[in-house]
């Protein structure tokens, strides 16, 4: 049998599903391996190539979850899915919060020259920059906002939220390196995680960038910078997620899909 062929992938999947089943699960795994080896040898004897013989053996053996759930104490697909979902939601939440915080902080930093310009002119309330399109519509007291260090937008909430996100991501990385949370049992499929990150971040990024561009064309400046910064960061996150999901060697959806009987 090939090291990364259908049989090995199938046995890996079954091993995950049989977690917690003790002697019964261990015995089934050994028997499955022996059975598949024999079936592959039989397929080869009938003239099939290695890949075809392994695929046919796995197909005839049946879907791993169909068989594993017949073993008493099997964690089964539900518990396994919940574990992987927990890690996925944790990672997604941390990344989303970090993205939000970083976007806000970067926007604030990039708008800093404009704020300095406003201060340098020392004409609060009467300066053209203290009115639309530079600031949101409605009554705004530029002097008060400046004194509260809250101009043009508050950056502290962004830093706070972003900090929580970074802490979540770092905590997850540390726990996955030092505890059972790093085991395959708790590890979502790379391709699935990649898509779950790439799709919402990608869509949000494109929407924000388009809105930012629209802001430029409409000469509405107060949200343009924030939209462009947040949008470009989201697109970057999406691109990284896609790259990690589909880089050569990463397990793909099709390759890891359970084989149905």
């Amino acid at each position: 049998m090939t090291a990364t062929g259908p049989v090995e992938r199938y046995l890996d999947e079954m091993f995950d599903l049989l977690s917690g089943t003790g002697a019964d699960g261990r015995r089934l795994l050994i028997e499955a391996e022996e059975h598949l080896a024999e079936a592959v040898a039989e397929g080869r004897a009938r003239g099939l190539d290695d890949e075809a013989a392994e695929r046919q053996a796995v197909d005839r053996f049946g879907a791993a979850n169909t068989i594993a759930r017949r073993v008493p104490g099997s964690s089964g697909t539900v518990r396994l899915s919940l574990r992987r979902l927990t890690i996925g939601v944790w990672a997604l939440t941390g990344t989303a919060l970090a993205w939000y915080g970083l976007s806000g902080a970067l926007t604030w930093l990039l708008s800093w020259p404009w704020t300095r310009l406003l201060i340098a002119t020392d004409r609060f309330g009467g300066h053209p920059m203290c009115s639309p399109p530079w600031i949101p519509p409605g009554e705004v007291d530029c002097v008060r906002l400046y004194q509260q260090n809250d101009f043009p937008t508050s950056y502290l909430p962004h830093l706070f939220i972003g900090g929580i996100g970074v802490v979540l991501v770092i905590a997850l990385l540390i726990l996955r390196r030092s505890t059972a949370l790093g085991a395959p049992l708790w590890t979502p499929k790379r391709s699935v995680v990649g898509l779950v990150f790439a799709v919402p971040f990608g869509l949000a990024g494109v929407a924000l960038v388009l809105e930012g561009i629209q802001g430029i064309t409409l000469d509405v400046q107060y949200y343009t910078l924030g939209d462009l910064v947040g949008g470009l960061l989201a697109i970057a996150v999406s691109a990284v997620a896609l790259r990690r999901a589909f880089r050569p060697g990463a397990p793909r959806l099709a390759a890891r899909r359970p084989v149905t009987a």
Binding site: G62, I67, R70, A261
Partner: peptide, 13 residues
């Protein structure tokens, strides 16, 4: 037409 792997848990049962 049964998935061959289902025989093993059945034998264990």
């Amino acid at each position: 037409d049964l998935p061959e792997g289902t025989v093993y848990p059945a034998l264990q049962r």
